[in-house]
Design a protein around this nucleic acid. Structure first.
Lengths: 301, 301
DNA sequence: GAATTTAATGAATTTGTTTCACGAACGATA
DNA sequence: TATCGTTCGTGAAACAAATTCATTAAATTC
């Protein structure tokens, strides 16, 4: 017989109530059961848990040690069970997010700020490094939500539209291409293109324009921050393609122009991908709602 | 089915080995048993412990929480079992001591200093406030050793002699009684007697001399520290009765004299009282041996 | 010293866990 | 995509264990 939680509970109950019978009452068991239980551990461990000289049972040295362990361990178990209860009730959970859209970080932070307040017991995280293969990671339960612009027809996976955006060409006002009203794939052939440091397949310029047209820019420079990209563009060190709302968000009116890509412009839609079983869970649905609201607010600016 | 240690071990094993079959191997059980076990907890808690989409089982959010709890709780249990093993092997244990003899504190500290080094896993303590009723406390396992000068004929209790001593009368050289070669009970009638602040029954002067002779001193003043008692005696603020070795230990030769109590002097013997079942335990026997050695050393000074 | 409280015991019962044997689902590989 | 090996889930049976019931023994209290 190994030591089990029941034994810890028993030790504690006997100590608290100061007697087998009362402890048995507390634990909804018979006095006999506790007596057998104690005997079991004592036999197994080879130590006396109680001083039996006196009639109301009192803890021995070994018993005291066990009590100390019990008082430390039992609350931890209670906490675990409370965690589980939170998960069951839907108040707690995990919301690990992968975003394929690199420009979306800032927008997402604002959303998560609100979300955290509403769902303090949900473990929120943005998981970097999953930019590619994010949808398999979703199925694998590595993450719980993927912000993606490429809805795939996957079973058990829901794609909820978040908002539409237009990737636009950005260049310095002094740039030759600023003269054109519309930018085409061929226009990139002699340019230095500034992008986020992610896989090309995740960049609209490449996936939607340059790869289909089989055009390779003269150079590609990768820069982490949107503000820095715009700074480089303004100083004519290259051109970029960014979502319209990203460009319009920049407050200071630097010296650059925006142009549509292809005639009529390019339209893209961002989705929240979730496991079908999760989509209706309260905090998942709430996060998506918050994300759409924030998108509306963002696009109004 | 409540969560038990076995479940924590299972969660940890599955996580560590990365599979049900390998975990089963580790725990010397069948893969089936683990599957049933997990199902049991999941049914009870109402949460999925594992993501079952992927084939090698992986922990879900709830499973991660349980793993965290397991990694905290299992070592605590291991420590408890190690404690028990120590108690069984006799390397560990409890040595709570009650001393009836107030003057013995200093001597005992020296003994315990050595004892602690030899038995680092024994929980050593001196329990004050048990000066009276110390022997019942020993039987009750409140304490494990009592230093006493009144061996009683108690069943299951051993009294091992530690050393003999002589309570001697101490007074200022200028005190009238310093003229007498021998001090009798009647001599105390007009004196201020300085004693330790303990029950009279625990003081040799009273139990051996004044109470039988029905003599009450003019005043009794209680002082904690031996050095202070001697200081007061030297400055003729009263007289005292102290063990011979206590007086001889005081290095500075203050202005006091010592005289035997009654013709031929009074001889007392100090004992270590222990529960008979404990007396032969290695660390108990060792403590008594150390105490006797220390007594010899002390009386040589 | 009688009454009461408290703990231990043994056998029976109930409860829970593990094994056995099998099958289904998945992933890798050709 | 067919096949093979691996991994996990399931139900019935076997096994193990904890708990209860009924009773006894011992200590405490009045």
């Amino acid at each position: 017989m190994r030591i089990e939680f029941r034994h810890l509970r028993t030790i504690k109950a006997i100590h608290d109530t100061g007697g087998l019978a009362r402890a048995a009452d507390l634990l909804n068991m018979t006095q006999s059961a506790l007596s057998h239980q104690i005997k079991g551990i004592e036999d197994q461990a080879g130590v006396a848990l109680f001083a039996r000289r006196t009639k109301p049972l009192r803890l021995s040295a070994a018993g005291e040690k066990m009590l100390v362990a019990a008082e430390s361990i039992l609350p931890q178990m209670a906490a675990l069970e409370a965690d589980f209860a939170g998960l069951v009730s839907g108040k707690a959970g995990r919301m690990h997010i992968a975003i394929e859209c690199h420009a979306c970080f800032e927008w997402l932070f604002g959303v998560l700020e609100q979300f955290r307040k509403a769902w303090p017991d949900v473990d929120v995280d943005i998981r970097p490094g999953l930019a590619f293969d994010a949808l398999p990671a979703l199925r694998r339960e590595d993450v719980d939500l993927v912000v993606s612009s490429d809805p795939a027809d996957l079973v058990e996976t829901d794609f909820t539209p978040l908002f539409d955006y237009e990737p636009v060409f950005v260049a310095s006002a002094a740039h030759p291409l600023a003269q054109k009203a519309v930018i085409e794939a061929e226009d990139f052939r002699d340019q230095t293109l500034i992008t986020y440091p992610v896989d090309r397949a995740r960049l609209d310029v490449f996936s939607q324009l340059l790869i289909p047209a089989k055009v390779e820019p003269a150079a590609v420079r990768q820069v982490e921050l949107t503000a820095v990209i715009l700074l480089l563009v303004a100083s004519n060190r290259g051109v970029a393609v960014l979502p319209d709302w990203v460009v319009s968000q920049i407050k200071y009116n630097a010296d650059y122009v925006t142009r549509p890509l292809t005639k009529g412009g390019m339209t893209r839609r961002l989705f929240a991908a979730t496991r079908a079983e999760d989509t209706q869970r309260p905090f998942v649905a709430h996060l998506i709602r918050l994300a759409r609201q924030e998108a509306v607010r963002m696009q109004r600016t």
